[in-house]
Amino acid sequence: MLRRGSHRSRCLVVLLAAVVTGCGGGVDGTPVAVPAGGLDSIALSDVDLDDVLGTKGIQSEPDTGETTDELAAGTVPPGCTGTVRTAEANVYRDAGATAVLTRVAREPGDGDSVEQSVVVAGSPQQAQHLLEIAKLSWSACVGTPVRQGGDTPSTWDLEPVDVRDGIVSQRSTNSVHGHCQHAMGAADARVVEALVCGANIRNQGVAVVAAMIANADAP
């Protein structure tokens, strides 16, 4: 049963389902070409992740160059799909994205896991617009359980959104993965995201995103 005020939350989520899928509309800017050096240097390496997260022996899977699609996987409500994955197709659909890279890493045993994504939006203005949309959509989903489909169904309970130093973040509890933090930031036209889950997650998602932004800004 949804808690008191759930009718208003449902209305916001339904409204944002339309807003998120059209998040790039009306934002002007010069199209940005895919960086010549690729995106792999922006995502943190296993050594960097161990340093930032305090993990031991974390191992990354091969990078992928596609967005995720939580709507197709059966995740509900539709307007909250962007809270539970990075590089979500429904978030970037109309953002003029020209490239994407996602890197998933896991610590051996029952340790931490982290999903990093870098998406090149159509312009710096588009990237900032995506951050503004994230603030609204993630906040609207607080108090509404997000039921994730796919191969490993789970339920997410989201906490209030925090915004500091240009990074949007949200902690949550997942029925399978424990405590998590999702964070999003931008460097020029590149939107960087991290979703970190584990037993003692506090601000690790923000730390990963801050390090990714530093990599993106490095000469």
Rank of each mutant, 00 (worst) to 15 (best):
A187K: 00
I167C: 01
R171A: 06
Q170V: 04
A99F: 11
A127N: 01
V19Y: 02
A207F: 02
S175K: 08
T67W: 14
L131Y: 01
G5Q: 14
S41G: 04
Q116F: 02
R3F: 13
H129T: 09
V100F: 09
P153W: 07
T68M: 10
T152K: 09
G74C: 08
V120M: 00
A199C: 08
E132I: 02
V209G: 05
G96I: 12
A140I: 09
L71S: 04
L101M: 15
G111K: 00
S172W: 03
D157Y: 15
A189Q: 08
S123H: 07
V76K: 02
D40M: 07
V47Y: 10
H182L: 14
A105R: 00
R85S: 15
E66G: 11
V13E: 10
V14S: 12
L53H: 03
I133M: 09
G111F: 06
S9Q: 09
A211M: 02
V13T: 13
A140H: 07
V34Y: 03
R106G: 13
A194D: 00
A140K: 01
V209W: 11
P77W: 03
D40Q: 13
V32M: 12
A140F: 07
A121M: 09
G38T: 13
T83P: 00
L136V: 11
D112K: 12
A99N: 03
G65Q: 12
C80Y: 10
E61V: 08
P124I: 04
G178D: 13
A134Y: 03
A216K: 00
T102L: 12
D157I: 15
P108D: 02
R147K: 14
G22M: 09
P77M: 08
E61Y: 11
A183K: 03
V163I: 07
R3M: 11
P35C: 13
D188T: 10
T68C: 01
P153N: 02
G65V: 14
T152M: 03
K56G: 05
S137A: 14
G57M: 06
L16V: 10
P108C: 08
N203H: 11
E193T: 04
L2T: 08
Q170H: 07
A99I: 08
L49A: 03
P77K: 03
G96F: 06
C180F: 04
A189M: 07
V142I: 06
T98N: 05
